[in-house]
């Protein structure tokens, strides 16, 4: 029980130890439509391995659709998405807006859902516990999800997404339903884990300041097109409310509302 304090990389010698192991993503002439409605049109996006990309935009602009296509949940109508290297099932994980935990399984078993089937027996528990400790919930392993708070549930969902040591992690507004303070805490957690593991992160959000706090690069989608592709070259951890962030936020919001 007291073995779950060490860092992930030390405790899990296989998947998670391949530390800088992000997956590069190349999106070319990507288009997608639902029936007659075109949601995305001619999207071009090159994401180098290990980059943290935030995708922002108004509701219904197609940002979640883009995420689902990259994560492999849907197949694009036109265009293509290429990856640097094989993309097996466990290499891409998605974290949803809702925790989507199995209410009939305890926290530990829920984290184990994320482990590849090749990990067996006691090793499964050990790894799940290690990851759970990483998100700060080691002592809740034997609880039912229903007794956790919203933020804790989302942390379990994060642990589940991390369990297989993904090379690409797609976040679909995972903090959207949390209160402001829990959100800030979770942002810190996501940033810390990303810095440790260096997966490629695709983070969809409608909160521009959240995007700027976390991302290396902010991509603004508007009416199915990339309206702005902005590098955020500020040192981490970023100070909330700094002048540089405010200036960038102003620029993004101007682009968003001028169109």
């Amino acid at each position: 029980m007291n073995a779950h304090t060490p860092l992930l990389a030390d405790s899990s010698p296989t998947d998670l130890a391949r530390a800088p192991h992000g997956l590069g993503v190349h999106v070319a002439r990507l288009g997608h439509s639902f029936g007659a409605k075109r949601v995305l049109e001619r999207i071009e996006l090159d994401i180098p391995a290990g980059q943290f990309v935030a995708i922002v935009g108004k509701s219904g602009c197609g940002k979640s659709t883009l995420l689902r296509l990259v994560a492999g949940l849907d197949t694009p109508s036109t265009g293509r998405i290429d990856f640097d290297g094989p993309r097996d099932a466990a290499a891409t994980r998605i974290m949803f807006q809702e925790p989507r935990l199995l209410p009939w399984e305890r926290v530990l078993a829920n984290v184990e859902v994320g482990l590849p089937a090749s990990v067996k027996g006691e090793e499964r528990h050990r790894r799940a516990r290690a990851i759970l400790a990483e998100v700060g919930l080691a002592d809740r392993a034997d609880d039912w999800p229903s007794v956790l708070s919203g933020g804790q549930r989302q942390r379990v969902a994060l642990a589940r997404a991390l369990a297989s040591g993904p090379r690409l992690l797609a976040f679909d507004e995972p903090l959207g339903a949390l209160d402001a303070l829990t959100r800030i805490e979770m942002q810190g957690l996501v940033e810390r884990i990303w810095q440790q593991q260096r997966f490629t992160a695709l983070f969809v959000t409608h909160d521009v300041s959240e995007a700027l706090a976390l991302a290396d690069r902010v991509v603004l989608i508007d009416a199915g097109h990339v309206a702005l592709d902005l590098a955020v070259e500020l040192p981490r951890p970023r100070r909330r409310g700094s002048a540089e962030l405010a200036a960038l936020e102003g620029r993004i919001l101007d682009t968003l509302f001028s169109s």
């Binding site: 949803f96 199995l102 859902v113």
Partner: peptide, 12 residues
């Protein structure tokens, strides 16, 4: 259906 989708995405 969200749980079913989750299960599929997680390779069940």
């Amino acid at each position: 259906p969200q749980l079913i989708e989750m299960g599929r995405v997680y390779g069940m």
